[in-house]
Design a protein around this nucleic acid. Structure first.
Lengths: 123, 123
DNA sequence: GAATACACGTGAGGC
DNA sequence: TGCCTCACGTGTATT
């Protein structure tokens, strides 16, 4: 007497997706868990075979959000990285890290080991 | 007369997973598509409802691999980033980009605009 | 044994 | 149209 134990097909109604193109996914997922699950399983607390599966998917969403948050802050640090996909963004990040690492090497060299151009000739 | 159109349950045999801890996933996936699909659908080319789904999952795997390849090269660039999960690694990358961007700012300043410490006092 | 992290296949939106 | 990218839920290994 519980509903659809291990099925994915609890996603069988429509949501206005055109309005908020990609925020739709998370909004729908939250809506799904907050409102649908308690209603479906109300009164049968011990008959929830996928109750662990609920927190599992929630934990997985938190993981995805942590990763995507870091990707978002990286997008702000890397110029022209808007409308790049994730792989291209990370490729740009690799280039910038390499480039900035090289520049950091230069500055530490010019500070710790003075070059010949730092000498002064007095006529 | 085709087998299991849209089911995930073509993963019902065991593979020695203990030996190669995490490379198991991709190895199994390749094995699944290269050998199982052609056998199951042999002789029924027009009766493959999930034939597009095969290339879909393959394309998705290529996408994941591209992202993970960039993450791997980032791991080599960031010190002590082994044993970090993806989110922590990206967090470290954010810090390094910020820090290196600051250092790059310093070097360009010290080159283009000489500071007072570059002056020479002759007694 | 619950929490955590990863790879996977799938549905859906945008060219 | 078909392909690409993304978010999602799930299976599974690790701890």
């Amino acid at each position: 007497h519980y509903y659809a134990p291990n099925s994915n097909n609890n996603s069988s109604f429509s949501v206005p997706t055109q309005i908020v193109p990609h925020a739709y996914d998370s909004a729908f997922a939250s809506l799904q868990f907050q409102y649908l699950w308690p209603l479906v399983f109300e009164g049968f607390p011990e008959d929830r075979p996928a109750s662990a599966s609920k927190s599992h998917s929630q934990a997985e969403k938190r993981r995805r959000d942590r990763i995507n948050a870091q990707l978002a802050t990286l997008r702000k640090l890397i110029p022209k990285s808007d409308k790049m996909d994730k792989a291209a963004l990370l490729g740009s990040v690799v280039d910038h890290v390499k480039d900035l690492k090289r520049k950091a090497m230069d500055v530490s060299k010019s500070i710790t080991i003075p070059s010949e151009t730092d000498e002064v000739t007095i006529i």
